[in-house]
Each structure stands twice: as structure tokens, then as C-alpha cells.
């Protein structure tokens, strides 16, 4: 569930931010790398799972045995494994914007962290200007750094038990 394209982006950002703090008077390269990581995270590919995994996983009756620990025992064979985002299932229905969606916390949360690391290193608020995400015809969504974080904060306030990552799954992140 943490092996999608976007996790190359977010996981790469940690060393970059830490290296920048080792040379606080030289940040230009680290700023540019983080800026490019953010730019890639706005693309369709960053949300490929959400944009392609609709409804229940058609392969869930054929999961390998080693995945049993990831699924409620009583539901084995009739339950989506973590990593299947299940856009469209109850209770939320189809929601194409991965940030606005009720679920997909692990998309918007890590994206907010990446945006924050870019701002921390660069001091540049360029991502607080409106930018487009996904960019797939009608599935083009406009956000800002502050807008993403404010939306996330609202969702946490409204759901004290947590926000779904994959639909119906709340993780301790």
C-alpha cells in the first residue's frame, strides 16, 4: 500500500530536507529538487490507485496466503486488501478528486508533508498560488498548499476516529 509512484516522491523528500538543514546557507539545489517532487505529485500518476481502483477489488478471492494477516480473518476472500483504494464504495461513492475525497488520507497527508518540506527548505510560497492537480480533462482540480492543509484539518475535526486512507480503512498515521 506504500509502493505507489507517489511514495518514491515523498520518501525521497526526507533525505533532501535533512541534507538542506546540514548546509542551511546553501539551499538552492534542495529547493529545486523538492519543487520538482511537488510538481510530480500533482500529476495523474501520483493518484493512479485512486483514479483506477473503483469498487471492490476483482481479485480479492485470489489473494496469496501471505496477505491473510492484512485482512480481517472472517472476511478473507470477500474483503479488499490494504492498497486497494476502492473509489466509489459505500459510504462515500465515487469521488474523483483525491484531495477533496472523504477518504484517501494517505494521498493528501503525505502531499501536505511534501509541500511543507518544500516550504521549509525554500521559504518559497509558490505552491500557495492555485495549481491544478490530476489534469485529466474534467478531472482537473485546483488547490493551494493552505487549501489542502485546511481541508485536511476540517476532515480530522469532523471525524474524531480518523480519516480513511483506502476507503473504509483508518490507519494510526
Amino acid at each position: 500500500m506504500l509502493s505507489w509512484h507517489r511514495f518514491d516522491l515523498i520518501d525521497s523528500s526526507y533525505a533532501v530536507a535533512l541534507m538542506s538543514d546540514r548546509t542551511p546557507a546553501w539551499r538552492e539545489v534542495y529547493s529545486e529538487i523538492l519543487n520538482e517532487l511537488v510538481a510530480r505529485h500533482t500529476s495523474w500518476w501520483a493518484a493512479e490507485d485512486w483514479m483506477t481502483q473503483f469498487g471492490p477489488d476483482p481479485d480479492r478471492a485470489d489473494y496469496p496466503d501471505k496477505w491473510r494477516a492484512l485482512v480481517p480473518a472472517d472476511a478473507w476472500g470477500n474483503y479488499d486488501v490494504p492498497g486497494w483504494t476502492a473509489n466509489g464504495i459505500e459510504p462515500y461513492g465515487v469521488q474523483m478528486d483525491p484531495v477533496a475525497a472523504d477518504g484517501m488520507l494517505f494521498f493528501k497527508g503525505f502531499f501536505a508533508l511534501l509541500l511543507g518540506l518544500h516550504r521549509h527548505v525554500s521559504g518559497d510560497d509558490r505552491w500557495n498560488e492555485p495549481f491544478e492537480m490530476i489534469r485529466d480533462g474534467e478531472h482537473t482540480f485546483t488547490w493551494t498548499h493552505s487549501g489542502v492543509v485546511a481541508h485536511l484539518a476540517d476532515q480530522w475535526h469532523e471525524h474524531r476516529s480518523g480519516v480513511h486512507c483506502e476507503n473504509t480503512k483508518i490507519w494510526p498515521y
Binding site: 526526507y14 480481517p72 472472517d74 490494504p82 476516529s161 480503512k169 483508518i170 490507519w171 498515521y173
Partner: peptide, 26 residues
């Protein structure tokens, strides 16, 4: 420790990874 909680079917799936994986963020 929960790996995740499913509020729709009210199921807690437990694993030590539920504590280990978030260490960096905690």
C-alpha cells in the same frame, strides 16, 4: 496495536507494524 480499523464493518486488524510504520511521523 491496530494496523488499521475499518469503521464500516467495525473490525480492528492488529499488527506490530501498526506501531512500527508510523515511527518517523510520530
Amino acid at each position: 496495536m491496530d494496523l488499521y480499523y475499518d469503521p464500516v464493518v467495525d473490525e480492528h486488524v492488529s499488527s506490530p507494524m501498526g506501531l512500527i510504520a508510523p515511527v518517523w511521523y510520530l
